[in-house]
Design a protein around this nucleic acid. Structure first.
Length: 470
DNA sequence: CTATGGCACGGATT
DNA sequence: AATCCGTGCCATAG
């Protein structure tokens, strides 16, 4: 107690304040934007200055002159990714990157919002008189693709039976992104599971796990989940990993597994991408364009006028004003630091995993955060923070967790999947698979093959269908 | 006897 | 320090 007091009083407020660093690295764009917005509202010393536009591509950017992309374009090489900060907020759910990214490219990007996207899919099966119902439903989706009104509300508004609304809703839920229009994540998962079951075997009890153990599932209490379902802990966690690999509780947020530990009231875990990677054009030998998304348009800085006015501060507000300045400086500095780290991280990642980004999971090289930390000469935890909870959009439009880049066995698992899919008549047993994998350069134990199978939801050999749909 | 799943341990990773 | 991951050994099912 006494000791604590001493240490706190030892530090003079002013310098301690400035030396401090905020933990911004671990935040996603969405979280960071919230933080900045509240800070902006509360702190008069903070100022958001208007952005400029690049004369070539008209993309908004902090400085005048050419934007980072356009200025680096001439010297771009295929191996070296172009990484820069981008204020883009308007990504598309299923988005192929809008063409505005390519200077000289005059194609207007076809912007389609989620409601129209879904409506187009179901149009054929939709009775004309139900069109307004569908429209009403689709317009009440929240940003996660979940329905924010009740069926009864809609029904009574349109003077129809709830069952009719349900029919339309079912139609919606079964279209891409599968699960849109469910009223909660749980329901969305179940619909997805159901649809998935038509094309591929799914683990037993997966549905039960979602129905009964949703809260356990999201808190990663696998042993309790196992007890609930009457199965072992490892079985439970295998089901969990299947779910997080293949299903998505927030349909509009594209493919993004990893049920995060933070419990119920934080829907922000699933979010818009923090980084978007695209290719410059369709040719093979092009540099990757990596956009690290910034939360706001414009640049954040300490208001110079406020700083000038500091001398004339009324004495009773003097310290208060100083603190405001300090806070603002700190925030600006930390945001800069955050951006810097992420940019460097992405530069290296995009270089190393170029093949993975372009050609898929088979080409993912095993690479640990520790190694990355070593290369970048930062602490391991820095990388961990930078990676965790963030999402990245690949050139294909898929959104995946950034942590996938450090998935140690994804590569082997995909190869395994391929082998099993290609297996002609006879199904390989786990030990056979182990031998084959060894031949491909992946020495794994038979026991491990079994685990990978389970993770991918592939049944044991004697239960597998001899015919592969392809 | 063969193929798999459960459990648990040790080492790597975060 | 906590967690994840690959593996070996044993039990069980077919």
């Amino acid at each position: 107690m006494l000791l604590q007091r001493q240490t706190t009083s030892l530090r003079p407020l002013t310098t301690a304040h400035l030396a401090q660093t905020m933990t911004l690295l671990g935040l996603t764009v969405g979280e960071l934007r919230q933080k900045i917005e509240t800070e902006l509202a509360e702190n008069p010393a903070l100022e958001l200055v208007e952005e400029h536009h690049c004369p070539v591509c008209h993309r908004p950017q902090p400085n005048s002159g050419l934007c980072p992309l356009c200025s680096r374009l001439p010297s771009a090489t295929a191996e070296q990714p172009i990484v820069f900060l981008s204020p883009r907020e308007d990504f598309q759910h299923h988005g192929v990157l809008p063409a505005e990214d390519l200077p000289d490219d005059n194609l207007a990007p076809e912007v389609e919002d989620l409601p129209t996207f879904v409506l187009r899919q179901i149009a054929a099966e939709l009775a004309p008189e139900d069109r307004s119902l569908a429209a009403h439903l689709l317009n009440n989706l929240d940003e996660d693709g979940l329905l924010s009104v009740s069926i009864l509300e809609i029904a009574s508004y349109h003077h129809v039976l709830p069952s009719r609304v349900e029919v339309v809703l079912k139609l919606i839920q079964r279209s891409e992104p599968i699960g849109v229009g469910c009223s909660n994540p749980q329901e969305a998962l179940l619909v997805q599971l159901d649809v998935l079951a038509e094309t591929r075997p799914i683990p037993l009890l997966a549905a039960e796990a979602i129905q009964q153990g949703m809260s356990l599932l999201s808190r990663r209490k696998y042993s309790e989940l196992g007890q609930l379902l009457g199965i072992s802990t490892s079985q439970a966690s295998q089901i969990a990993s299947f779910i997080s690999n293949n299903l998505n509780p927030y349909p509009a947020r594209a493919h993004w597994g990893d049920v995060h530990q933070s419990a119920e009231p934080s829907p922000n875990v699933y979010h818009t991408p923090d980084v978007i990677i695209s290719r410059l054009n369709d040719r093979e030998e092009t540099p990757l364009v990596v956009e690290v998304i910034t939360p706001l348009y414009g640049t954040l800085r300490v208001n110079p006028l406020f700083r000038q006015a500091l001398h004339q501060a009324p004495p009773e507000h003097s310290t208060e004003w100083h603190q405001a300045i300090d806070r603002a400086t700190l925030l600006v500095k930390c945001i800069g630091q955050r951006n810097h780290t992420i940019v460097r991280l992405m530069e290296l990642l995009a270089t190393i995993q170029r093949k993975f980004i372009l050609h898929g999971e088979v080409h993912l090289l095993p690479f640990t955060r520790a190694r990355m930390a070593d290369e970048l000469e930062v602490h391991e935890s820095t990388i961990s923070r930078a990676v965790s909870g963030k999402a990245i959009q690949l050139p294909t439009g898929r959104i995946i967790p950034l942590s996938t880049f450090f998935d140690r066995n994804l590569q082997v698992r995909t190869v395994l999947k391929q082998i099993i899919n290609q297996e002609a008549s006879a199904n390989f047993s786990d030990s056979q698979l182990a031998v084959i994998l060894k031949g491909h350069g992946y020495p794994v134990a038979r026991r491990t093959v079994a685990k990978y199978r389970a993770m991918e939801g592939i049944l044991p050999s004697h239960l597998r269908q001899p015919f592969k749909p392809c």
